[in-house]
């Protein structure tokens, strides 16, 4: 696994799967008030980590920090470090474009390009110069996103003709085609019906064999069903972070308990 800079920090060996992303004392502000306040946590490889918390607590802000999507929002200031494979992705030498090639993202609302299904999936690889075996790569990505069977006979039709759930799986396939290490998902099912949601949850189970997944969700059941670890944020602070089982059944913090049992507010 190559890293982003030459000045490579030694990867600390832990007992658990090694951390792919480490958040160290991160504070993020839009203007003055911190949206994320001194948060530290580490995301292990080939696991699904869920980030939960009430609306406005900073989940999306934290998630976007992982692949430097906050760079596009004016007046965002960040303190602290985010390490990917041990190296800080916010130092000057790191190209944010390179970070985003390794750490893909799926958004809340499906946002396929107004192009054909094939072109959508091929888009990432082709701008990055992978033009050989593009067909094979597109097929593989669509298969991994559990969409191939539904679209293989109409690859060259517009992606916008797909249903919402299919579009979201197409966006997942589009992210997979880049062969990223990490996939960030910001409420990927919130615009979908229960059947599509179930399909995407099944898909996440399969994907974690190869990828590290971080998912933001408002849906407690979803977090409990799909994730291995759960982080609970409130008002920009990390209240609790641990194995999902433990967070949901034996939460250490009173606030966490109130939130996961729905007695929140």
């Amino acid at each position: 696994m190559n890293t982003l800079t030459k000045s490579e920090a030694p990867i600390s060996s832990t007992q658990q799967p090694r951390p792919v992303l480490e958040v160290v004392e991160v504070t993020i502000r839009y203007g003055e008030k911190p949206a994320i306040n001194k948060v530290s946590l580490s995301i292990p490889q080939h696991r699904i980590t869920a980030i939960i918390g009430p609306s406005g607590c900073g989940k999306s802000t934290l998630l976007r920090a992982f692949n430097r999507m906050n760079d596009f929002i004016p007046n965002v200031k960040m303190e602290g470090q985010i390490l990917y494979m041990g190296s800080d992705i916010y130092v000057r030498e790191v190209d944010p474009v390179e970070v985003r090639r390794r750490i893909g993202m799926v958004f809340q609302k499906p946002n396929p390009f107004p192009k054909s299904i094939f072109q959508n999936v091929a888009w990432g690889p082709s701008i990055n110069g992978f033009t050989r075996n593009l067909e094979a790569r597109v097929e593989q990505s669509l298969r991994r996103a559990a969409l191939w069977e539904e679209v293989n006979d109409r690859l060259h039709e517009s992606a916008l003709a797909l249903s919402g759930g299919q579009q979201q799986r197409l966006c997942i396939a589009r992210a997979l085609a880049m062969e990223p290490d990490v996939i960030l998902m910001d409420e990927p099912c919130s615009a979908l019906d229960p059947v599509s949601t179930a399909r995407i949850e099944d898909l996440m189970f399969e994907l974690k064999e190869r990828y590290t997944i971080v998912i933001v969700t408002h849906n407690m059941q979803q977090a409990a069903r799909v994730s291995n670890l759960t982080a609970f944020l409130e008002n920009g602070s990390l209240v609790e972070f641990g194995e999902t089982d433990q967070v949901f059944t034996r939460p250490r913090n009173k606030r966490t308990e109130e939130y996961v049992t729905g007695r929140f507010g």
Binding site: V97, R100, F107, P112, F113, W123, G124, I127, R174, M178
Partner: peptide, 15 residues
């Protein structure tokens, strides 16, 4: 053109 398309493209490592 919706901002979400730009975000989607940037997230794929586009310049």
């Amino acid at each position: 053109v919706p901002e979400s398309l730009r975000q989607g493209a940037f997230a794929l490592g586009a310049t």
